[in-house]
Design a protein around this nucleic acid. Structure first.
Lengths: 201, 201
DNA sequence: CCCCCGAAGTAGACAGTGTCAAGGATGGCC
DNA sequence: GGCCATCCTTGACACTGTCTACTTCGGGGG
């Protein structure tokens, strides 16, 4: 049992090394061989633990979905905010996650690296994160004049907006315009506030 | 001169082969060597024409930005639509482009494959596309009750929404839910229409 | 006690890749 | 004719993911 724990923490360490590598040099700077080198083991050991390259990436993606879900879920518990303020907070949480964990975020939406259909664990984590977002949006929108049929669309709309902001800031031209973390946060904040204003009207 | 044209069309052919490869097997299924093989030339010829791997990808991305800009620009010329209808059309054009040219779209927003800062041609094409979108949004929004300061945010907001929809449908869970092209178009359409409704209010 | 077996880790090989370096053709220009 | 730039080829190198086979070792049943 103690042994099992050791291998478990070893897996975790491999994941950390891999994450660090991605954050340093981008997604294609990650090689299992380099991970092995940094972990001080043979080039084949990571393969032994994870099966193949996709599996280790999928594990990182699953971590990411878990954290994203937790951040969004945390919004509803922070009782200070209510109504559209929660919606705003959820959007900000989404963007903040992407900017603070770029390696995770990218992996979560790069099917050529991680095909979620082949990694049910990561897929399930993704669905939990989505459910968290959906809860926030529905809670905020159900008492408004939204027709019931529009509520699902409101979830999609909010999600797409947050995801688009995150993507454009991280990998798109928006990130070239706003280079510092503060500038990026401001850009996201302004767009999200405008969105809130539109919803309240 | 005739010779120069030949090399020009040859470059184009290489780009087509590369694009086809990406659309078949994903981004990492593209290798310059495979491109060379399919074009019936030596493994080094593409390198000779484009410099390195990034350059050929940047050329594809530039093509993509050009087409995207043209599609968005086409919206303002189609005189049938006015006001928020134009905005809706631009959003649909953005999503349609992503779904019909997935290889191009992905490349345009994957800095680990193409760093736009190192490829001014692609960067300029991207700015033109952005300008086209900005024109549509501003034209639609300037006569509303938007304060001037909010207009820039409205551009960001619209862009992020379209981009998020496209990304989620192409590479995210939304694409797993809506698998057929029709279903995806419907999903995007519903979200965009809700957005229009919010703006009109 | 010994043996054996499964799990963890190692080592070597293979095909494939991007890239570098050098050489061969070829056609226009002085 | 001689020359040179351009296009293209060939050969090599280091690196990658993956496959296969080999060692090592700790714990449970004969």
């Amino acid at each position: 049992m103690a042994k099992h724990e050791d291998t478990e923490t070893f897996r975790k360490r491999l994941l950390e090394v891999a994450t660090a590598l991605i954050e340093e040099g981008g997604l294609d700077a990650l090689s299992l061989r380099e991970v092995a080198r940094r972990a001080g083991v043979s080039h084949q050991t990571p393969y032994h633990h994870f099966g193949d390259r996709q599996a280790i990436l999928a594990a990182i993606a699953a971590q990411g979905f878990d954290e994203l879900g937790a951040r969004i879920g945390g919004v509803t518990e922070a009782s200070s905010a209510r109504g559209t303020a929660q919606l705003l907070a959820a959007g900000k949480a989404y963007v903040a996650f992407a900017l603070e964990r770029p390696a995770h975020f990218r992996l979560m939406f790069r099917p050529e690296h991680v095909d979620l259909r082949h990694h049910p664990e990561a897929l399930a984590a993704g669905q939990r994160a989505h459910a968290a977002l959906e809860a926030v949006v529905r809670a905020c929108v159900e008492d408004k004049t939204f027709r019931r049929a529009d509520q699902g669309d409101a979830v999609t709309l909010t999600w797409a907006l947050a995801h688009g902001l995150a993507s454009l800031l991280l990998d798109g031209p928006l990130g070239l315009t706003a280079q510092t973390p503060e500038a990026r946060e401001i850009t996201a904040d302004r767009a999200l506030r405008l969105f809130r204003k539109l919803i309240e009207a």
